[in-house]
Design a protein around this nucleic acid. Structure first.
Ligand SMILES: [Zn+2]
Ligand SMILES: [Zn+2]
Ligand SMILES: [Zn+2]
Ligand SMILES: [Zn+2]
Lengths: 163, 163
DNA sequence: CCAAATATGTTACATTATAACGTGTCTTGA
DNA sequence: TCAAGACACGTTATAATGTAACATATTTGG
């Protein structure tokens, strides 16, 4: 127990996550809830070992498998995403805020990584997804999962750079 | 010296690569040529440490930085690509076979990873790229580099599965 | 040839991720 | 109620991937 209390907004999203899990028979345990909370509180993608450090504030002897297992669960549930180019994790904007229809399992998304400020924006753009599906279907390839990540500058950082 | 001799087709592609480098003032040294050869001979994406093992057939005491530096060079030249989801590398189909206009620097591409046979296909699909550019421009994000990787089944593996 | 730039060698280490096995906890049906 | 099984978590050890830092060698241009 003694789970850390997060900011109110985070707790609300955690409650949403808990409902989403319950809705299809999986459990957002205290541990998983805490790892998800740590991901959500971070303004930017968080590495597994940063999460481990965060966990250790509560649970002294926590080890890597603890956090990796929680992350695997959260990925399966579509509650977080892994940013491959950063080996780091972000909360899913779609499942946790609005009540997205596709919640409860991993979903296709696209990520914009700003190399200026480090922030990552999640897109759910049908155009990109369809272009990918179209291109692959032409050569008989069936897509099960897609990774789309763009690095560049967000609007704020670009303006700061040209000023 | 004593650089390994590769299959004739590979040597041809290596010669192409050497010309591409020379054309804009960089050098495909023996070491880089050998690493590129090892990548090209592999039917599938190769990890850095597999390449290191390959290198050691010639150069007994080779160490990780040797292969990572060669890989960095080859990536810069657009001669290979890194598949992020596999932490592995493939030769670029476009720059090494036909003489692609964009050769000599990294370029946007998309990769189809077959989870059945492990083979990776490189696409250079304008539709996907444009969909990405369009979606990002709408929110003021400027893309410098993109990673697009799809996992699924190639035509052959899908047919084998349904049979 | 000499100096600068480039490329490689070498040692040590950092970061990310998983295997394997033991322990607790919860459920559920006999 | 209570065993049996499933699930979650703890713990130890190690695998796999990637870099920092500094020394040496090779190439290039003057
Ligand atoms: Zn999402
Ligand atoms: Zn930014
Ligand atoms: Zn390419
Ligand atoms: Zn296949």
């Amino acid at each position: 127990m003694a789970a850390t209390i997060f900011a109110e907004k985070t707790e609300t999203r955690l409650d949403n996550a808990e409902r989403l899990c319950a809705a299809h028979g999986s459990r957002l345990t205290d541990l998983r809830r805490q790892v998800l909370g740590l991901v959500l509180e971070a303004a930017r993608p968080v590495g597994a070992y940063d999460l481990l450090d965060g966990l250790r504030a509560d649970k002294k002897g926590a080890a890597p498998p603890t956090v990796y297992r929680a992350l695997d669960f959260l990925l399966e549930e579509g509650l977080i995403h892994k940013i491959e180019r950063l080996s780091a994790f972000v909360g899913c904007t779609h499942t946790l805020d609005g009540s997205h229809a596709e919640a409860g399992h991993p979903h296709a998304a696209q990520f914009l990584i700003c190399t200026g400020c480090g922030q990552v924006t999640e897109l759910d753009d049908h155009g990109i997804l369809h272009a990918l599906i179209d291109a692959t279907r032409q050569i008989g390839f069936t897509v099960h999962h897609s990774t789309v990540e763009a690095e560049g500058l967000c609007a704020a950082c670009r303006d700061a750079a040209t000023a």
